[in-house]
Design a protein around this nucleic acid. Structure first.
Lengths: 215, 215
DNA sequence: CGAAACTAGTTGCATTGCAACTAGACTCAA
DNA sequence: TTGAGTCTAGTTGCAATGCAACTAGTTTCG
């Protein structure tokens, strides 16, 4: 077993790099530009190049990509052009299958924050959620404009499918926020420290410590 | 400037630890148990304790929590009980405001995978998305059962608000998946390499490299 | 008595995110 | 023409996170 290296782990960036090299061999900076041109910065975090170079290094060590040439377009620094290998072509399919079919547990900050919203008063909660709703609406509008523009310009639907998904999720978040906001406004969703303490003392709160005092 | 330390960064786990210590001083393992009992493992990643201990260390160094006592319930190892400080109480409010009101750009794997779905044939895509849809449906059903059970047991709505949100998002994902799946089945969503290459060659593909060949 | 399982915490490694830094080339205006 | 800003291109370092393994005492069960 000569070439045994640990299998390379998938990540959004690794998948995208490997996929783009599928279409054409390219150098790291070119990949970054391509990702931005195709509007995929929403989806892959190529903002700071560090991640990109490290990912490429990882793929190279793992044998999923190889150096094709080192070109020198005078006026620019030397650029190393990479191409995908057969192992890389196989890996992309495995990753893609896994990433598409298995919903992975991730831990975004918003649900975590929501789960502690009772530290705020209903009024404070209302104000912060209103701000979020505005921002989500703006983001959604901007994204929808880009997407429909691209669609009208003839970009095939499958190439915009991730925007379609993101928009569906954003729309759901917005609807949900609007509902909660209106429930906070009309008082059908409220709480107070006393109420919560009462609910906690009859709930399943008494078994994690030798001491049963709450608050 | 004696006690100047860098401000502690927020994270789902840090927020939750700080919030729970609000209700009652506790030791790390107790916090982990509490998080699990309250069904918050979906939302905070306390699966491997390492993160928990490191987070607590971080909060301690940052002055947001303090050691209250070191108890010894013989038969158990010594346990250090922490309590939240005034600085901690202030930090939680700032964090919460930020985390609730500002939608942060995160990079989950599914959209990244979707954006490269065209590497599969429409048929392959259909099959993998069907699998995801099944899993999402199962997860949603399980979660809904837990949530409605808790609600009927008298847990106040605000304490289940993050489940409500997650369920809304899961429902949207499921609806979206169902739509795409049916479009894949009836052929109203398709693609082929030739089609994509054609679209690419008239699109904005030609400026990231000196070489314009695609494929 | 021995094997599991639970309690409690630690260690190490790979990966990520974020920010700063280097450094050459080009662009434009004072 | 020279200096300020801006691109291109890549590197370095640190803190944080995720994941897995390891230590070690305790209890439980056969």
């Amino acid at each position: 077993m000569a070439g045994m290296t640990a299998p390379v782990k998938s990540s959004p960036l690794a998948l995208t790099v490997l996929a783009l090299l599928h279409y054409r061999p390219l150098h790291p900076y070119g990949l970054q530009q391509l990702i931005k041109q195709w509007g995929k910065e929403q989806v892959v975090n190529v903002g700071q190049r560090a991640g990109l170079y490290r990912t490429i290094e990882r793929l190279l060590v793992g044998g999923l990509i190889a150096v094709r040439q080192t070109e020198r377009d005078q006026q620019y620094p030397e650029r190393t052009v990479y191409e995908v290998t057969d192992a890389g072509r196989a890996a992309v399919r495995e990753w893609l299958e896994q990433m598409l079919s298995v919903p992975k547990a991730e831990f975004p900050v918003f649900p975590a924050a929501l789960s502690n919203m009772m530290l705020f008063t209903p009024d404070e909660a209302l104000r912060t959620l209103e701000q979020r709703a505005e921002r989500i609406a703006a983001q959604r509008a901007a994204m929808e404009e880009v997407r429909s523009g691209a669609a009208e310009a003839g970009v095939p639907r499958v190439a915009l499918i991730e925007d379609e998904y993101t928009l569906a999720v954003l729309a759901a978040e917005q609807r949900w926020l609007d509902g909660v906001i209106s429930d906070l406004r009309d008082g059908s969703l409220t709480w107070s420290l006393e109420l919560l303490a009462a609910a906690a003392s009859q709930g399943p709160a008494e078994s994690a410590s030798s001491d049963g005092s709450v608050g």
